[in-house]
Design a protein around this nucleic acid. Sequence first.
DNA 1: CAGTGGTCTAGACCACTAT
DNA 2: TAGTGGTCTAGACCACTGG
Lengths: 236, 236
Amino acid sequence: MLKYQQIANEIEKYIEDHALQQGDKLPVLETLMAQFEASKSTVTKSLDLLEKKGVVFQVRGSGIFVRRHKRKGYISLLSNQGFKKDLEDFNLTSEVIELEVRKPTKEVARNLNIELDDDVYYVKRVRYIHGQALCLEESFYNKSIVTYLNNEIVSESIFNYIREGLGLKIGFSDSYLHVGMLDEEEAKYLGLKKGSPKLYVETIFHLTNGQPFDFSKITYNYEQSQFFIQANSHFL
Amino acid sequence: MLKYQQIANEIEKYIEDHALQQGDKLPVLETLMAQFEASKSTVTKSLDLLEKKGVVFQVRGSGIFVRRHKRKGYISLLSNQGFKKDLEDFNLTSEVIELEVRKPTKEVARNLNIELDDDVYYVKRVRYIHGQALCLEESFYNKSIVTYLNNEIVSESIFNYIREGLGLKIGFSDSYLHVGMLDEEEAKYLGLKKGSPKLYVETIFHLTNGQPFDFSKITYNYEQSQFFIQANSHFL
DNA sequence: CAGTGGTCTAGACCACTAT
DNA sequence: TAGTGGTCTAGACCACTGG
């Protein structure tokens, strides 16, 4: 574990353990440097990480403060797909509808940047949160990267398997969101009426080296769809 | 302008001007250091900024690469509210429905962290994109921070005015998203039928010092609602 | 193993906030 | 004007990628 990650974790844990609230002041940089026996740059890097995660905000000339939102039960849109373990809090389960090796459609081939005669794993699941249907998910994995999947893996966390089991490093994702109405099939899986509103998200996941390995289409149950986004103006 | 921002801008401009595509390689760090007469840390900081903005990705042992998504016409959810000037590309206009000073409801007072007898500016607008109704927006500004608004300001970019005119520094925001159905009034303003799907977003905007100054409720026309999110796994 | 990006340090100096 | 965070540098050393 890198030093700046370690420090970030400890600060975050400290905030948790002491149940600090929005606006509470953390020790000054100098103190943190001494406490963690690290240089200014390293502590700053930790704090930048925490700022990016929405855990603190730094005010020049004033101090470092805790950032906390009050609402509960929202799913973070920036870290919902294998990026974080917030999910554990949510008691998430999956029912596998289908799992097979296929040839990609043109759409899938384009998004995964592969040829039409390459192979993909096709996975169709319904995901449940506290026993309620949260979303219908169809995923396409580039088989030359994600070389093997089975029912057991697919009913657990696929991303954990990709990281731990296959040793791949997940890098970044592009998500496209639309609002629309459920068709008959979607409604059936989600236990809703046809024509109900839906949030529809297509996401392309890339490895750290930029290769796309997963193209996913997710249809969310609007009744369960509460999402959360934290933004910074740091990039203008 | 800070050096690392300057460098980031120039690199971004270079990518634009040369129409570089996803996966194209940028010069190595050493070259960039020489070219911009900057230290390694500074160039790295520029690249981290660009990575956060989704413009490049860096691969240890390999190089720095351009990140580009292909789809057009999507609004970035991370930078839609005065955070960026992408909007200019979209030809965005506003019709002001209402503008007045009010006392806050309990809900508004809670979100703006003020008392019930403080004053807020209430602004109700319909925003149009290419002449089509994009969203209905109700905003509440803490009047002790945003001390003055008029019709002219409100029909342009309020955030620009807050930054330039009032000299305030916008820091970060928390957004809460829901999917639902339009009620009668919303449908009227958006030119849709009651019961159509909607994306409903509540956002609290803070100054850099953590003070909330704007609580906004936005209802999006589902037909125009195409959003985009870029995520990194850098924060685990 | 050569090339390339990532981490970490120590320290100088700058810019903003609060009093 | 003292306190505090932000920028920038030069350089040592580490870790990963790819031929």
